[in-house]
Amino acid sequence: MPDPDRLAALRDTVAIVGVGETDYPADYARARRGERYQDAYGYAAIAFRRALNDCGLSRNQIDGLIAGPSLAGERLGEVLGMDVRWADQADAVQAMLKAAMAIHTGVAECVALVYGNDQRTGGTAYGGPNAMGGDRHLAYTYYAPWGLTSQGALYALLANRYLAITGLTERDLGQVALAQRAFAGLNPNAVMREPLTMDDYLAGRYICEPLRLYDYCLVNDGGVALIVTTVERARALNRPAVLLRGIGRSDHNREATSLRPRLEQFYRPAQRQAAEQVYAMAGLGPSDVDVLQVYDSFSIHVPLALEGFGFCADAAKLLNSGDLGPGGRLPVNTSGGHLSGSYMQGWGHQVECVRQLREEAGDRQIPGARTAQYISDVAGKVTSLIYGVRP
Rank of each mutant, 00 (worst) to 15 (best):
P2D: 14
L7M: 09
A9Q: 11
V14R: 01
I16R: 05
Y24Q: 09
A26D: 14
Y28P: 08
Q38A: 13
A40Q: 08
Y43H: 15
A45Q: 09
F48L: 03
R49L: 08
L52P: 06
N53M: 11
D54R: 04
G56W: 01
L65W: 04
G68K: 01
L71W: 07
E78S: 14
L80Q: 02
V84D: 09
A90Y: 04
D91G: 12
D91S: 12
V107Q: 14
C110S: 12
L113Y: 09
G116S: 08
G133K: 00
G133N: 06
D135L: 14
R136F: 12
L138W: 12
A139T: 07
A144C: 02
P145R: 10
G147L: 01
N160R: 10
A164F: 05
A164L: 06
T169M: 03
E170T: 00
E170G: 11
R171C: 02
D172W: 00
G174L: 03
A182S: 13
G185M: 04
N187E: 07
C208Q: 12
L213V: 05
N220W: 02
D221F: 03
G223I: 00
V231D: 11
E232G: 14
R235E: 15
L237C: 10
P240G: 14
A241F: 07
G248F: 03
H252A: 12
H252N: 15
H252I: 03
E255T: 11
E276C: 07
Q277P: 02
V278Q: 08
A280S: 13
A282I: 01
P286R: 08
P286S: 11
S287D: 15
D288K: 08
V289N: 04
Q293A: 07
Y295L: 00
E307F: 00
F311D: 08
D314T: 11
A316W: 02
K317Q: 15
N320A: 15
G322N: 02
P326H: 05
G328H: 06
S335N: 11
H338T: 10
S342D: 13
M344V: 11
G368D: 15
R370W: 05
A372Q: 06
A372G: 08
S376H: 10
D377E: 14
K381Q: 15
I386H: 03
G388W: 04
R390H: 14
